[in-house]
Design a protein around this nucleic acid. Sequence first.
RNA 1: CGGGGCAUGGCGCAGUCUGGUAGCGCACCUGCUUUGGGAGCAGGGGGUCGUGGGUUCAAAUCCCGCUGCCCCGACCA
Length: 571
Amino acid sequence: MRLSRFPLTTLRETPADTEVVSHQLMVRAGMIRALASGLYTWMPLGLRVVRKVESAVREEMNRAGALELIMPAVQPAELWMESGRWEQYGPELLRLQDRHQREFCFGPTHEEVITDIARRELQSYRQLPVNYYQIQTKFRDEIRPRFGVMRAREFAMKDAYSFHMDADSLAETYEDMRLAYCRIFDRLGLEYRYVQADSGAIGGAVSHEFHVLADSGEDEIVYAENSDYAANVEQAPAPAPDISQHPAPTENLVHVDTPGQHSVEEVSAFLDVPLERVVKTLIVHAPDNSLVALILRGDHHLNAVKAARLEGVDAPLRFADAEEIKERLGCPVGSLGPVGLNIPCYVDAWAAVLSDFVCGGNTEGTHYTGVNWERNAALGTVCDLRNLEDGEPSPDGSGSVRSARGVEVGHIFQLGDKYSQAMDCTVLDPDGNKKTVIMGCYGIGITRIVAAAIEQNHDEHGIIWTDAMAPFRLLLCPIGFDRSDAVRDATEDLYRQCTESGIEVLLDDRGLRPGVMFAEADLIGIPHRIVISERGLDESQLEYQRRGSSEPEVLALDQFPDFLRDRLTSD
RNA sequence: CGGGGCAUGGCGCAGUCUGGUAGCGCACCUGCUUUGGGAGCAGGGGGUCGUGGGUUCAAAUCCCGCUGCCCCGACCA
């Protein structure tokens, strides 16, 4: 491709309405253009990257024996009523009516449609197992679309659905999919982790998430240094404290004045007590809207997902606001504590083993010191409320964990019979009896991978593509293309060699000043770059530079064919 | 959904308080010079100031309505 015929409108300045670096670079490089909130046009340069991701996914899905199909994006409400999700799904589901006032939705996912296909097509156990997939546009009416295509409303997703006679067969396909996903992310050259996403509390359902590691990721994950264990921090159990470390009380309860001291850090400093001997008291809503208290050690961080899973706590977690707390507990936030607190208390295990600790005095500007459970405050329910943190022991007993941030790009799930049961999807078994099939589902966010890859691989100049995702493999940068016959002739010859070798090559034949050409080259991130100049040609030399490496290499002109063969055709 | 902010040429912004001929940088077009990291000079094109109403001799600017977009909304308790 010649850049003179490939309009590339890059922006020198960062658009004001972009926040994360992938969004900024995608807009600046001309990969995407916004149409409305959460809706983007993929420009030719960006679409080439999307296609690379799609084809890696498609090839590995095919290799794993999955069958590609395409289902409609628009789905009739009747199917969603059968599964019960028409009521359940809420405002994220974009609902529409046709000219006859029939109800439809724009599919955010396709369990209902595929289950409908399966119950019509599949009659016999002989047809199982089977795994269907599609690469298709989804629409989810997100509360708050942001970060460009990372959290868009319309996005491309690969979704697969498998059907089985029994759990063993499902487990086999599930493992095949897990391996296929690993191959996909390996091929794309991304650093990733797969993490367990569910502890098994929900009916034995098994689920794993795949995360591309990036500092800006929306999820925090923890992984063991010495084993395969990895989990979303939302799910990872914190270690249990050593009960024997629970010393006997030595101090008396004292109600002290702490004027203006509200945060645990302030109180810790003011009273000269270590942060880990101060507890914080957080007030949230119960399902019936009454208040409950969550109590943690001052240096620990609340895990909202764990808290929301407690029976007496509403899910998702809803914090009580300051006015409500003042009104119902008679004390401003910042001075709350468990002593004499007249609402249900959930106490993190690490706070429960404290002795002689500090907490709020339940009156503005006061705290208690020398507090001891049961002696001064009812202990309430002891549970795991906090995050597992970097450096702590791994839940699988294999040493310590590290914490990292990740972008969720894949999710595989053993669904069981939730949809097949509701929608009566059955086949005949060898004995001629009707059996409800069980299902798995497997998603990959195609367009999100593009953003995640940029989050992971960029520098101050622009994007750094891996070979597998790059819109073009090689960029030819001739200096003086418009005014030097030698440069132009040599460049045209190299370009011809590339196209004949099947290399995806981009030629900057615009004759721009070198500074502009290089700045745009860095921005769009083509992994391999050859510079052709009169200066070099005088010595029969080219200059090669890998995007992201600081040192250019000299390449003899007559070695260019070897270069193509050795460095650019190996996948 | 709640709170805040913004809307002026393709992009980034000034002008709005205090009403009086719409401006700057980048980008774009033409010419000349320049050519190894987003050039210089000269000339040029492009804007119903988001939208609907109102006030006024006069509205980007003041008033009212609407729309769109962006940001914040889990830990001072």
